[in-house]
């Protein structure tokens, strides 16, 4: 039995709609090109929690981190800056403690020149790195900044204190198998692969 033209048109429209929906939901992958406009539309578009985890995997392993699991990223938006926050915690928190890791990506749009200049006044000493993007700098807190064209981006890794019940800092005796290094150079080393990947994609 031959389908009528009406059915064909409806089926084609349905398929197009499905593929459009599917295309819209393709997760961002490390290494895939990204325009500054796409990043401006959604600061969390660059990575899903999983793809960010893949970018960080090698560095975390070298730093002795246990296997981590991430929540979906959350964004904060203003006219002058946007932020995407990724949070990771050990997969087996009973064995490895509740040490968490936060990755902040700040999309400073074209407003980051003052921060870049401030970074140059207090760079992180002993931070070996080649230039990322068109210009880059790591400040003394370990925050890594770079510029691609007119777009400024900053990557900050934060290792918050280990807490119990949400607000009590654990004593040294409470530690389990892992306590993360938190020196600025360690944090900058973690931020480096993310910044490199992002800068390459934004080019």
């Amino acid at each position: 039995m031959r389908a009528s033209w009406g059915y064909r048109i409806v089926a084609a429209a349905g398929l197009s709609l499905l593929s459009a929906c599917a295309a819209a939901q393709v997760p961002a992958k490390p290494g895939s090109p990204l325009t500054s406009q796409e990043l401006r539309d959604d600061p969390c578009r660059a990575y899903t929690a999983k793809s960010m985890q893949r970018v960080l995997a090698g560095t975390l392993k070298r730093a002795g981190w246990p296997q981590v699991t991430g929540n979906p990223p959350t964004s904060r938006i203003a006219a002058n800056v946007q932020r995407c926050l990724y949070q990771f915690s050990p997969k087996d928190s009973r064995r490895d403690g509740d040490q968490s890791l936060r990755v902040y990506i700040y999309n400073e749009l074209d407003n980051g020149a003052k921060l870049m200049a401030a970074c140059r006044t207090r760079p992180l000493r002993g931070a070996p790195m080649s230039t990322i993007g068109d210009e880059s700098c790591i400040d003394d807190s370990g925050e890594l900044r770079f510029r691609v064209g007119d777009s400024y981006v900053a990557v900050l890794i934060d290792v918050p204190p280990r807490l119990q019940s949400g607000n009590r800092v654990l004593n040294a005796s409470d530690t389990s198998t892992f306590t993360a290094p938190s020196r600025p150079t360690d944090l900058a080393a973690l931020a480096l692969p993310v910044a490199r990947d992002l800068a390459e994609r934004l080019h």
């Binding site: 904060r76 203003a78 002058n80 400073e108 749009l109 407003n111 003052k114 921060l115």
Partner: peptide, 24 residues
């Protein structure tokens, strides 16, 4: 921007506030 950035139910670190103020 200031109240969209500073949603009251989120805690805001000094680094975040500095990012916001310095890019404004």
């Amino acid at each position: 921007s200031v109240f969209y950035w500073g949603y009251p139910w989120l805690s805001t670190s000094e680094a975040e506030t500095a990012e916001f103020l310095m890019t404004s």
